[in-house]
Design a protein around this nucleic acid. Structure first.
Length: 325
DNA sequence: TTGTGTTTTATTGCCTCC
DNA sequence: GGAGGCAATAAAACACAA
């Protein structure tokens, strides 16, 4: 233990008319134990000089006179001084590396002061030191250590609160996940049913058509209207087929339609799959059929005005993305 | 009595503020 | 540059079980 700071040089001289805690508690009621401290620990005692009083605080009366360790009270009376033998004190005080515990009363006093204000201004430090018969440096150290203890306790409290919050969130997450799984399974079952129904319908139509074709002899259309008639029937065929393909992600015609942007135009009344993309994670997007969640690179918005920073989204739909970096 | 863990007091070194 | 705060740490004091 070399070097280090030099002790604060004892309590400041002069008498005071108010205690340090009194400085802070001017408008507060004092507690009874502290009152006794204030009274008994007064530095106004004419019988002892402040410097002597502060020095005396560095020792235990009972230690000097053979006290038995635990349950010690170091400073039975702050003001008296008649029962102190200076030689014993000097002997004790000069022992190197000895630590002296503060008395219960001193600690109570300091605790009370700490409750009021956990920082220590120089004036209060000196005043407290005077009141308690300690070195100002000791008071400062006590406050420093007390702040450290308080901080540790606070951290423990914060940790407990965070842990409780974490547990609550975890439970919420679990229940939401279960609900999501349940809903996903429901969606799966329903979409399978839908596909089955559409296929049945399609098969029925095909068989009906083939029956008609096999029973009716082919009629030659009139030359003038031939082109028109075949065009209309062709369009009808394609139209009905496309409609059913909307529900069939495997249909190449469906994909063509999507790519040409002719069927799934947002805002169109036929735009039936307006998925809320914000609720889907990227992984989920990847697993979904393209008709529910067309990939960005598959959608051509070349006919729409775009800004330099809209990531390929139509400007009017994604103003959010349109800020400039 | 002794070994061990905890608490309290004090030191050291670094940092910030005035 | 000095004062004061803080984190890390040392070491004495204390508590307590074996």
């Amino acid at each position: 233990m070399a070097g280090g700071r030099i002790f604060g040089g004892g309590a400041a001289g002069g008498s005071s008319s108010s205690s340090s805690l009194g400085l802070l508690l001017q408008n507060n009621k004092r507690t009874e134990p502290l009152d006794s401290l204030f009274l008994s620990g007064s530095c106004n005692s004419s019988s002892s000089s402040p410097s002597f009083f502060a020095s005396r605080s560095m020792m235990s009366f009972e230690d000097v006179h053979g006290g038995n360790g635990s349950n010690k009270t170091y400073f039975r009376s702050f003001g008296g001084g008649d029962d102190i033998v200076d030689d014993d004190f000097d002997e004790y005080f000069q022992q190197p590396g000895k630590k002296r515990r503060l008395s219960v009363e001193q600690v109570q006093f300091l605790e009370k002061s700490f409750e009021v204000e956990n920082k220590l201004e120089p004036e209060r430090k000196v005043q407290l030191a005077k009141d308690l018969g300690l070195q100002p440096r000791q008071v400062a150290i006590w406050f420093q250590n007390r702040r450290a203890r308080w901080k540790t306790k606070q951290l423990e409290k914060d940790y407990d609160v965070l842990q409780a919050t974490h547990n609550t969130l975890k439970d919420d997450y679990e229940s939401l996940r279960k609900e999501t799984d349940k809903l996903k399974a429901e969606v799966h079952v329903l979409s399978e049913k839908l596909q089955e129904r559409e296929k049945e319908k399609e098969n029925l139509e095909l068989s009906e058509n083939s029956n008609k074709l096999s029973q009716e002899p082919p009629e030659k259309p009139i030359a003038d209207s031939e082109g028109e008639v075949s065009k209309v029937s062709a369009v009808e065929d394609i139209s009905s087929s496309v409609k059913s393909d909307i529900f069939d992600s495997d249909s190449p015609r469906f994909n063509e339609a999507v790519h040409s942007n002719s069927l799934l135009e947002p805002g169109d009344s036929s735009y039936v799959f307006e998925a809320d993309q914000s609720d889907l994670s990227q992984d989920e997007e990847d697993n979904l059929p393209s008709y529910i969640f067309p990939k960005l690179e598959d959608v051509d918005y070349s006919d729409k005005p775009t800004s330099s920073c809209n990531f390929g989204f139509p400007v009017e739909d994604h103003a959010f993305w349109s800020w400039s970096y």
